[in-house]
Nucleic acid binder design. Structure first.
Lengths: 193, 193
DNA sequence: TCTTGTCCCTAGCAGTGCTAGCGAGGAGTC
DNA sequence: GACTCCTCGCTAGCACTGCTAGGGACAAGA
């Protein structure tokens, strides 16, 4: 019994190790550098071990993405609760969101551009995903107009932020004017339509 | 002299063939199916021939992207000029943009999500890119408020549309409510802040 | 002590993008 | 028309990818 639990504990520990290694490698050298061989070397096990923990590379990325969502949720919450007033909160969350996307591109990609086999807009989405969206929702809800569907409004705001981050990060929008674009987006969302 | 021009003509023809094959393959089976081997077989030449025309696979994708931009520009123009009034034009362009992204996912990805070395926000961007952006600009400019930077406003609107398309296409936003989200986005952009 | 079973590693598969170097055949020269 | 040269596309192969089959060591239980 005790041996069994020790083994399970060690196994869980190793799984955490894999996720951490994948994440650090991705953050320092990009996802292209995260190969199964490299990852295996990093955790000091052979490649097949990875597949005893995860279905494949995508599943590892998904696990990293979930971690990333938890962190983003925390950052969004901090920004939101520190702000005074509904408009300020919306702006702070927008700022925090885009800042996260720029500071942690690898994490952001895993969360919102790459991995796909995570259930997103459904009931059985992982808790951290719902948390992060919940933070956005909590910031958007107060500025919603009468009769607005706050869920849809949040999704739309999210899309705006996501578009800014991805287009900028891929070099399609110049970085310099980011603050102004963000201000425009927020301004139009706090205006009553 | 004549021989030379014939050769150049044939070469240009073959280059067009490559781009077309890449595009059709991508549109029917996705970019993952577009391998250099597959592409070479499609044009009935060997792989190295591809590299005498393009620097690499990315360059082929970039060429497809430029084609896609030209088509999108045309569709946006049609939508914009057919609409009566500034608000209607903005809505029509937004509709046309997202519709394009959903109807031609492979083309859209080449243009706006895949990392390409195309110069985007600079003077020497390929003409079709500037055309497509120009169409957005022409739709946004009439609804800009006093003192707004229409360029930045257009970029922000573009980001909103892009976010909607990508998040929806990757399964992160449910498809069903797309029209409502689009309406929300447009509504907030046509409102004076 | 011997058997059983778990777990991990070595080796390999079928692909990928890309490139070196050869050989055929057309172009230019006498 | 014959000869040289040189262009051009091919075959073959490199270094890499994600992933998997199979054996072999080591620990657990009888």
């Amino acid at each position: 019994m005790s041996i069994q639990t020790r083994k399970e504990r060690e196994r869980a520990e190793r799984e955490r190790l894999i996720i951490t290694a994948a994440r650090e490698l991705a953050e320092s050298e990009g996802w292209d550098a995260v190969t199964t061989r490299r990852l295996a070397a990093e955790i000091e096990y052979s490649q097949p071990v990875l597949y005893s923990h995860f279905k494949g590379k995508d599943a590892i990325m998904a696990a990293v993405a979930v971690q990333g969502c938890a962190e983003m949720a925390a950052e969004l919450r901090t920004a939101r609760t520190a702000a005074k007033g509904a408009r300020a909160a919306l702006a702070a969350v927008g700022e925090a969101y885009t800042s996260f996307g720029r500071r942690r591109p690898a994490l952001y990609d895993a969360m919102f551009t790459h991995a796909v086999d995570l259930p997103f807009a459904t009931e059985e989405a992982p808790a951290p995903l719902k948390e992060a969206f919940g933070e956005l929702l909590a910031a958007v809800a107060p500025i919603a107009a009468e009769g607005d569907d706050t869920g849809l409004l949040t999704e739309t705001y999210w899309a705006g932020l996501h578009g800014l981050v991805t287009l900028m990060r891929s070099g399609r929008l110049p970085e310099g004017a980011h603050e102004q674009r963000l201000a425009l987006l927020i301004g139009h969302f706090t205006a009553t339509s």
